[in-house]
Design a protein around this nucleic acid. Structure first.
Length: 957
RNA sequence: GCCGGGGUGGCGGAAUGGUAGACGCGGCGGUCUCAAACACCGUUGGGCUAAAACUCGUGCGGGUUCGAGUCCCGCCCCCGGCACCA
């Protein structure tokens, strides 16, 4: 064996031996605990793996390898997420069929995974596109269908015009399709949904018990978006149209306010037909009053005012007549949802989403100019894309409907507006607007001159200063609720609304049902037959899978139907009763396939059923699930949902699939950009124009700006494991990936880092080679029995401290400190072994133990080197099958400790004492310290704090 | 704006409330070499120093504590996610 790390000499050899000995095959032995460690199901892309992928796979491999050595039954599987858009698009681009293409890509992935020595049990591999797998995806679909959790319905859905299919809400980011980048259009077509909303509450509640990154849990909570509030109904009133009336110059008679008073009275009458008579009388009375006033006053201007008022009155009266003939406004109601029922007295208007169904009912009844405004606004809203509508800081728009609604809390009438800042898809699509205490309503009210009422103040007295920002405090201007605190008022108003039967408390979620159907070929067919009478029938289990037909052309049609719809042999079938029927032609989105693969790994070759329950019960949940953070609200939410459904159906015994989740950081590659020339100024990102490494070479340093960007084929900045292994070796790559940064931190990749790992490994080879001549293979039989000496004690302490630290570090995913602990150990050992001549027997034994342990601890991180070293010291088999060392608490403990001496918390001296030193002695030594004395001069010692085996702090002033 | 995670040398980063900067990269000095590369050895937070001593130092301002990178309060900045969700 060489005394240097020369990967080309042995790494391939060991990989071959591992394969031949099938050491990675999952073992289940009685009486052992289990450990299920898994990486996210990758989609095999033509680009192959980058070192970024390896940053996911290597750490999982390290923890799984350690668990095996610790005596766990370990399940560490790998498979491929082969169905779905990316594969199909790639196949279309390459003018090939996705099935053989995916085969090739997956084989290449596997080759690369093997190249870096990951210990997957390949005997359990499958692809989600294997009929033997998707048969059971269909079977699970049917279990959802049976339970009413898979349904087909018309909906305005996200249509991706590039990929020519609909997509789930989770796949849309900022109005664009996450994958294709296309601006999403709304399309009104029948689609399949999974009723994930039924599980919204449980999906929130059960997050608490999961050992997941806080950020992911928060993203899921936020996506599900639970809010508690009150939903209540509002009654519509369509008031008499009042034209503008000039204000009279006589302060005693304000025409405008008289008219408004009249309106209020009309409203208060509740529009009862019987009130019409008295209302008309009142109008007459006001007319008389006005005439009197006119008589008393003089001047032409006032006469004009009265004339105008008369005209207004006339119009009012005639409108009143119309009104009774045209409508029965009591029939019109709409529901609003609010989380702030305590602000109900601050409601000064209501807003309906432009798509709200009530609008079509009231539009014909309001004054003609309002109806026109409504129609124009609705049209505008329809034409506006989602992105434009949701553009940042967009100015509020809206129109008054001409109709009013009655605030149930105080009977006051408020105008109903329509505005697109209210979303039709959330809550009831209508709100009570409280501009006093809601920013959006405030912006709207200010723009359209709607009044603002302050109903909450921090102190109890209105501040009068707009805008009112208080969210918490005491109610004012709120009738009998004035003076109450916010939470008290919320409770009482909620009770009051429920008592009156106007509405009830409600929990509202942002989450919407999971849109699962896709109008694409390369996916799992939905196993449903549409019978002639419209009935939807499940394909019986023994007829599953409904296989994808082999076809030449599978391009998406783009007309909203699946390519399968154009294949008569597929579409035409018979239903359960033997009558002609039509197959469902949509396929399931890829996320359905990846929502249960972790169950299949427990029993991957079962042809009778999806899984044997006791096998799933044994392995589940996944103890450690590792992958990127980008799946926070997609795969990770869907998989949790399916698991819960299967739990409810009694098919699995866990409510949650992944008890621990870890997200690896991204690996960023150096990416060259250049400044655009003047002609190119349009359509350039702020980084500049992406260029190739070759082009960068031809340009001067000033012309190129290098940036760190996620490795991707399109950016040309990918570093592959193949090149890294070729130049530095698989173990150097593995250790570098572990060491370079904390596991979840992003990394700026540089190949230089691997050479330092190569040096480290060479140092280990050197140490082992130096110690080999004195290595005692039976150290275990002798160590601890004879006399120890200082040197041997020191070595054994290092050894056992290293065992403890490495074990803890791997368990808590602190792989960078795991590697650095091995480095410290090896630095210490090489200092010790540099001039190794005739060691004492205790030192010989201690060094033998140290070398043995070092190799075992190294093995998860650098398995090839570990086996090579293992063999060189005459051990047999593989380190993988050896036991993980256990630290002895006695040996870990120091026999001497350094005591820090502080004066008023500042370090002044250190000294060493034996571990058992008495507190008084330590204290005396500290006080006697020469370095401490000057700092105590002229001061009185107030207190001396002694922390055993740590420090002494002298408090003096 | 809201939610989550962060802010420590030239850089990546260590540090159960107890000696800040482990380990590594880079730098500097040296050994080897005709020389360079490799490798190895030593050194390396700033200030002041010949050196020691001293002093400053974990984004900023307060606080708790004998003692704070770590805990509490108020800010600033960076990264990620969501975003007119009533």
């Amino acid at each position: 064996m060489s005394d240097r790390y020369e990967p080309s000499q042995f790494e391939a050899k060991w990989r071959q031996r591992w394969k031949e000995a099938e050491i990675f095959t999952t073992r289940t032995e009685e009486g052992r605990p289990k450990f299920y460690g898994m990486d996210f199901f990758p989609y095999p892309s033509g680009a192959g793996l980058s070192v970024g992928h390896c940053r996911n796979y290597v750490p999982t491999d390290v923890i799984c390898r350690m668990k095996v050595m610790q005596g766990f039954n370990v399940l560490h599987p790998m498979g491929f997420d082969a169905f779905g858009l990316p594969a199909e698009n790639e196949a279309i681009k390459r003018k090939s069929h996705p099935a053989p293409m995916i085969e090739r890509y997956a084989a290449n992935y596997r080759r690369q995974m093997d190249l870096i020595g990951v210990s997957y049990d390949w005997s359990r591999e499958f692809k989600s596109s294997d009929p033997s797998y998707y048969k059971w995806t269909q079977w699970i679909f049917e279990r959802l269908f049976e339970r009413g959790l898979a349904y087909r319905s018309m909906a305005a859905v996200n249509w991706d015009p590039i990929d020519k299919t609909v997509l789930a809400d989770e796949e849309i980011v900022g109005g664009r399709a996450e994958r294709s980048g296309a601006l999403v259009e709304k399309k009104w077509i029948p689609q399949w949904f999974f009723k994930i909303t039924d599980y919204a509450q449980r999906l929130i509640d059960d997050l608490d018990e999961l050992n997941w990154p806080e950020g992911i849990k928060a993203q899921q909570r936020n996506w599900i978006g639970r809010s508690e509030g009150v939903q209540f109904s509002m009654t519509v009133s369509i008031p008499i149209h009042v034209p503008d009336v000039p204000t009279a110059p006589d302060p005693h008679i304000d025409l405008r306010s008289e008219l408004e008073k009249l309106q209020d009275e009309i409203r208060a009458s509740g529009f009862e037909p019987s009130a019409k008579e008295s209302t008309i009388q009142k109008v007459g009375q006001i007319e008389q009053d006005l005439q009197k006033a006119a008589g008393a006053a003089s001047g032409k201007k006032f006469d004009q005012a009265v004339d105008a008022a008369h005209k207004a009155m006339g119009k009012m009266s005639s409108n009143l007549e119309d009104f009774e003939l045209k409508s029965r406004p009591n029939d019109f109601q709409f529901e609003v949802f609010t989380t702030r029922i305590d602000t109900i007295f601050g409601m000064t208007f209501c807003v309906l989403a432009p798509e709200h169904p009530l609008i079509d009912q009231i539009a014909p009844l309001v004054a003609p100019e309002h109806e026109q405004n409504i129609r124009a606004y609705q049209l505008q809203a329809k034409l506006l894309s989602d992105t434009d509508r949701q553009a940042e800081n967009r100015e509020k728009t809206g129109v008054f409907t001409g109709a009013n609604a009655v605030n149930p809390a105080n009977g006051k009438s408020v105008p109903i507006w329509i505005a697109d800042y209210v979303l039709a898809t959330y809550g009831t699509g209508a709100i009570m607007a409280v501009p006093g205490h809601d920013e959006r309503d405030y912006a709207f009210a200010t723009k359209f001159g709607i009044s603002v009422i302050e109903v909450i103040t921090p102190g109890g007295a209105p501040t009068g200063e707009l805008p009112f920002v208080s969210k918490d405090g005491v109610l004012v201007n709120s009738g009998e609720y004035s003076g109450k605190g916010v939470s008290e008022a919320q409770k009482e108003l909620g009770d009051w609304i429920e008592r009156r039967g106007i509405g009830k408390r409600k929990i509202q979620y942002k989450l919407r049902d999971w849109l699962i159907s896709r109008q694409r070929y390369w996916g799992c067919p939905i196993p449903i037959i549409h019978a002639k009478d419209g009935e939807m029938q499940m394909v019986p289990t023994d007829c599953l899978p409904v296989e994808l037909p082999q076809v030449e052309n599978y391009e998406p049609s783009g007309d909203g139907t699946s390519p399968l719809a154009h294949i008569p042999n597929f579409v035409n079938t018979t239903d359960l009763d033997g009558r002609l029927g039509l197959r469902e032609t949509d396929t399931m989105g890829g996320f359905a396939c990846s929502s249960w693969y972790f169950l299949r790994f427990c029993d991957p070759h079962n042809f009778e059923k999806a899984w044997e329950k006791n096998l799933v019960d044994y392995w589940m949940p996944v103890d450690c699930y590792v992958g990127g953070a980008e799946h926070a609200v997609m795969h990770l939410l869907y998989a949790r949902f399916w698991t819960k459904v299967l739990y409810d159906a009694g098919l699995v015994s866990v409510k949650e699939p992944f008890s621990r989740l870890e997200n690896q950081g991204q690996v960023l590659g150096m990416t060259p950009y250049r400044k655009p020339t003047e002609a190119e100024n349009l359509d350039v990102t702020e980084e500049g124009i992406l260029i190739s490494y070759e082009e960068a070479e031809t340009l001067s340093a000033e012309e190129v700006s290098w940036r760190w960007a996620r490795m991707s084929k399109s950016k040309g900045n990918v570093v592959t494991p193949d090149e890294a292994v070729e130049h530095f070796g698989a173990d150097a790559l593995r250790l570098y990936l572990l060491f370079v940064a904390p596991f979840n931190a992003d990394v700026n990749w540089s190949n230089d880092g691997m050479s330092s790992q190569s040096r480290f490994l060479s140092r280990l080879f050197k140490i082992v080679s130096d110690v080999k001549s004195v290595y005692e293979p039976r150290w275990h039989d002798f160590i601890g029995f004879g006399e120890a000496d200082d040197k041997s004690r020191k070595i054994r302490r290092w050894t056992h401290q290293t065992i403890k630290k490495c074990t803890d570090d791997i368990d808590r995913f602190s792989f960078n400190t795991y590697v650095s602990t091995l480095m410290i150990f090896s630095n210490n050992l090489s200092d010790m072994t540099r001039d190794l001549t005739e060691p004492s027997r205790p030192v010989q034994l201690a060094l033998s133990e140290a070398i043995d342990v070092l190799i075992r601890l190294l093995s998860p991180g650098a398995p090839h080197s570990a086996d090579e070293l293992w063999e060189s010291i005459g051990a047999s088999g593989f380190v993988f099958n050896a036991e993980w060392p256990v630290a002895s608490a006695d040996l870990v403990a120091e026999d001497e400790v350094t005591i820090a001496v502080q004066v008023n918390g500042k370090l002044r001296d250190t000294f060493t004492v034996s571990i058992g030193a008495k507190e008084e002695d330590v204290k005396a030594l500290a006080l006697a310290s020469e370095k401490v004395q000057p700092h105590l001069e002229g001061k009185t010692i107030r207190k001396v704090i002694v922390i055993p085996a740590k420090l002494v702090n002298i408090v003096a002033n």
